[in-house]
Amino acid sequence: MIQRHRRLRKSQAMRNIVRENHLQLQDLIYPIFVTHGNNVQNEIESMPGVYHLSLDRLHSEVNELVQLGIQSVIIFGVPDEKDEVGSQAYAEEGIVQRALKLLKRWYPQLVVIADTCLCQFTDHGHCGVVCDGDHGPVVDNDQSLELLVKTAVSQATAGADVIAPSNMMDGYVHAIRQGLDEAGYEEIPIMAYSVKYASAFYGPFRDAAKSTPQQGDRKSYQMDPANAREALREAQSDLEEGADFLMVKPGLAYMDIIYQLKQNYDLPIVAYNVSGEYSMIKAAEDKGWIDEKQVVLEMLTSFKRAGADIIITYFAKDVARWMRRDEER
């Protein structure tokens, strides 16, 4: 038996035939940060190779993605103006809504996912409306849900194929599902950020989205990294409220959670390969300490092995280029 296993591992072609998990380009979703202005393509300092893009630079970026074979993107907005209720998140001509309209006009076949949250649009950086509580500022869950529903409906109206609410308010899937249905968008699925931990891996994203909380943190509405059983309760709640996808965020430190969701639910499981995971690898590669390609492919394949059907990753373009070069050899 041992000899037979060794024989099956002997050549790369044979290894490919017996490989249990395969990373494919259609598994990957590429995040894009859109902002106001003209001719803006500013590299995010903490995320090499990722840019803030104005709408006039968006077409060339997405054209490259399509040419590489990437089929799905998720859009994050970085507005010029912010206020306490995040009104630009649900404005008819908000930066995300304008980007959605353009993308669906240019590339109707592209799956365009809208991040649905208020944190990039509020001047305090929280994912909901902040009010005064008995012991200091708190997030008003119910008022936040009303604005998140408005945001989701405005995004669907602008052309979003999928709504991806990342806010972690209680009851957010039910509220958004009801709001979409009442607005006539019954066919728009919800990619729920079902298991979103209060993680230290989000730092570069908050730099990119300019969404760092101005006071306090998000631990009151994001999960404790020490908890696993809670993840199943959160996923079950989102399933019952009408979620169509279940996401685990971050991915790398929570593969056990990806595995548990895959074992317990039939919905597609999404892993978010977050900004900190991306930036650490880019920094180590820049120092010459690792082989970036091999590390990235190993990491993303491990998400698949753990049970992820879909991976949101800033490495999508890199992976597409590597795959193309390998095919051309």
Score class of each variant (00 low, 15 high):
residue 316 A to N: 05
residue 129 V to Q: 03
residue 319 V to D: 08
residue 213 P to M: 08
residue 269 I to T: 06
residue 239 L to G: 01
residue 82 K to V: 12
residue 240 E to A: 06
residue 179 G to F: 12
residue 29 I to Y: 14
residue 130 V to N: 04
residue 144 S to Q: 06
residue 147 L to C: 05
residue 298 E to C: 06
residue 244 D to V: 01
residue 239 L to F: 15
residue 163 I to M: 11
residue 87 S to Q: 11
residue 211 S to A: 14
residue 23 L to E: 04
residue 179 G to T: 00
residue 13 A to C: 11
residue 190 I to E: 04
residue 178 Q to W: 11
residue 9 R to V: 04
residue 106 W to F: 13
residue 268 P to M: 13
residue 86 G to N: 02
residue 249 K to I: 01
residue 248 V to S: 02
residue 67 Q to E: 14
residue 115 D to F: 09
residue 232 L to W: 13
residue 130 V to H: 00
residue 172 Y to A: 04
residue 194 S to L: 00
residue 19 R to T: 02
residue 24 Q to Y: 02
residue 134 D to G: 12
residue 73 V to Q: 00
residue 44 I to A: 07
residue 299 M to Y: 06
residue 236 Q to M: 14
residue 122 T to R: 09
residue 143 Q to L: 11
residue 250 P to T: 01
residue 286 D to G: 12
residue 259 Y to K: 15
residue 276 G to P: 10
residue 167 N to E: 15
residue 114 A to K: 08
residue 135 H to A: 13
residue 278 Y to M: 10
residue 119 C to W: 00
residue 181 D to T: 15
residue 117 C to V: 13
residue 172 Y to D: 11
residue 186 E to M: 12
residue 40 V to Y: 06
residue 321 R to E: 06
residue 179 G to P: 09
residue 150 K to I: 04
residue 106 W to V: 03
residue 264 N to T: 08
residue 231 A to K: 07
residue 262 K to W: 02
residue 185 Y to G: 05
residue 212 T to C: 01
residue 274 V to S: 08
residue 74 I to F: 11
residue 268 P to K: 11
residue 158 A to Y: 10
residue 320 A to F: 03
residue 207 D to E: 15
residue 325 R to W: 13
residue 108 P to E: 08
residue 49 G to F: 03
residue 277 E to T: 07
residue 28 L to H: 04
residue 73 V to M: 00
residue 26 Q to K: 06
residue 329 R to G: 05
residue 212 T to R: 01
residue 44 I to P: 02
residue 28 L to E: 01
residue 195 V to K: 02
residue 235 A to Q: 15
residue 205 F to L: 15
residue 170 D to Y: 11
residue 92 E to T: 13
residue 56 D to G: 05
residue 209 A to Y: 08
residue 121 F to K: 01
residue 102 L to H: 07
residue 276 G to F: 01
residue 315 F to T: 03
residue 214 Q to G: 08
residue 85 V to N: 14
residue 288 G to F: 05
residue 45 E to D: 15
residue 82 K to C: 00
residue 290 I to Y: 03
residue 40 V to D: 04
residue 112 V to G: 02
residue 42 N to D: 08
residue 314 Y to K: 01
residue 20 E to Q: 03
residue 179 G to W: 10
residue 128 G to K: 09
residue 153 V to L: 10
residue 309 D to M: 11
residue 252 L to C: 12
residue 33 F to C: 03
residue 112 V to H: 08
residue 145 L to V: 05
residue 239 L to M: 14
residue 238 D to E: 04
residue 125 G to A: 06
residue 133 G to W: 09
residue 185 Y to R: 07
residue 282 K to C: 10
residue 113 I to H: 00
residue 145 L to F: 07
residue 327 E to D: 10
